[in-house]
Design a protein around this nucleic acid. Structure first.
Lengths: 228, 228
DNA sequence: CCGACGACTTGAACATGTTCAAAAACCAGT
DNA sequence: ACTGGTTTTTGAACATGTTCAAGTCGTCGG
């Protein structure tokens, strides 16, 4: 299991070291006092650099969040590996991947609200639909593609091709639920995952019924038509 | 069809007049130059009051958006009346209600991005899931309840009871799509509405198939369990 | 008319994200 | 070691949302 300070591990050149120092300081402060209460001045002071220097490496406070998000993605990708290697049935694969996200993101739960606030702005590079977050998005969809491909699911090809993106969308929904979930130990979000995944599984198996098939095809067609 | 300046119609006391003046000035500037570029100072100057005075009536810039949102809701509720009165089949009823939203909100399309940015913050009173926006949300769900109840849809009772909230959620999704839609004349969002509504209709009719019925019941159960 | 009380209004002051011109540090190439 | 250029660093200045102590106005009981 990786930790936060890992971000400094791969530091090499002088400039890179400063960059990583600023990032890890920022993330620590975000975690300790929340995003809103953490000022750029505080980040700079704690990191032992000037305000302007922080802006030299991160052109805005939001970009520090972007960096955090990328870091989170990496952690999730790594943490999910063992599940994808060991498990072959669809339900535990998907459940595992989604619950792993919760674990990885847990330390930042409170701060995540502000993150998604920024991400909701279509003009922000942090928007999950923006061009700039395409790499992160595709990396995330890739995880779900592996969930599907490595499982015992039998599905019509067109649906199987779209499914990873749909699961990614499902995760977006769960994340939205998560940021609003202030129950102890996040048990409502966990319950949502544990109950919705089997439901998805049953829904997918329903596509064998002829009457359902036509609707699903239209649905896939609709999704294709609105995607780009 | 009501217009923006209507907000001043019901003005009575001195204070109320100033309040409405500030709001209409703010909305005009938001529309003309976007939310970000409109400063509180500009609003105050244009309205002929001091900055502090604007804060006396609206405790933050976000609250001016909240007020805008309420205004939008009212307009939508009124504009939808004729459709609900004239039409009895489900598809045109729902399509009409959704497209009417587009028309009412159109002048604020660009500014809406910023609106949903704020609304995405779980701690913001503008969040569609917050306590403070409960009245607006319930009013909106009420519209969809009328869409369902006044239509020729035949559905199992449990599903019919949950459907209005599901349609409200669908509208949230469409709005999310809308804020990202920068095509000419919003034709992608319109296409989404025109194609997804018949699909929803067909999906709902599928619930008559016994195999589907069980899954739908579980789905309704899941939704109920996570609602409060 | 007086005074007092609340509603309203003001603008300067504050906090914080961001910019930028200048200084410092660093790094060849000679 | 010197010089020219590039990278990095600095901190003061700026823009803008927000607060607040003080002022003004309107009204109502006496």
């Amino acid at each position: 299991m990786t930790t936060l300070t890992d971000v400094t591990e791969s530091a090499t050149s002088k400039g890179e070291q400063t960059r990583e120092l600023i990032l890890s300081t920022a993330l620590r402060l975000f975690r300790e006092q929340g995003y809103g209460k953490t000022t750029m001045r505080a980040i700079a002071t704690e990191a032992g650099v000037s305000v302007g220097n922080a802006y030299y490496y991160y052109s805005s406070k939001d970009h520090l969040m972007q960096a955090y998000y990328d870091h989170l993605q990496d952690q999730h990708r790594d943490a999910v590996e063992s599940i994808l290697a060991a498990e072959t049935s669809f339900v535990p694969r998907l459940t595992g991947v989604l619950r792993t996200w919760l674990e990885v993101a847990a330390p930042y739960h409170e701060f995540a609200g502000t993150f998604f606030k920024t991400a909701a702005d279509p003009k922000s590079p942090l928007s999950p639909f923006s061009d700039q977050s395409r790499p992160a998005r595709e990396a995330s969809v890739e995880i779900f593609r592996r969930v599907v491909d490595g499982s015992d699911l039998k599905l019509p090809a067109e649906l199987k091709a779209e499914l990873p993106e749909l699961l990614w969308l499902m995760q977006m929904g769960i994340v939205l639920f998560w940021v609003h979930d202030d129950t102890e130990d996040l048990h409502r979000t966990k319950a949502l995952i544990d109950r919705s995944v089997p439901l998805v599984d049953r829904l997918l198996r329903l596509t064998r019924i002829p009457g359902v098939r036509g609707v699903v095809n239209d649905l896939v067609g609709l999704i294709r038509s609105i995607k780009p």
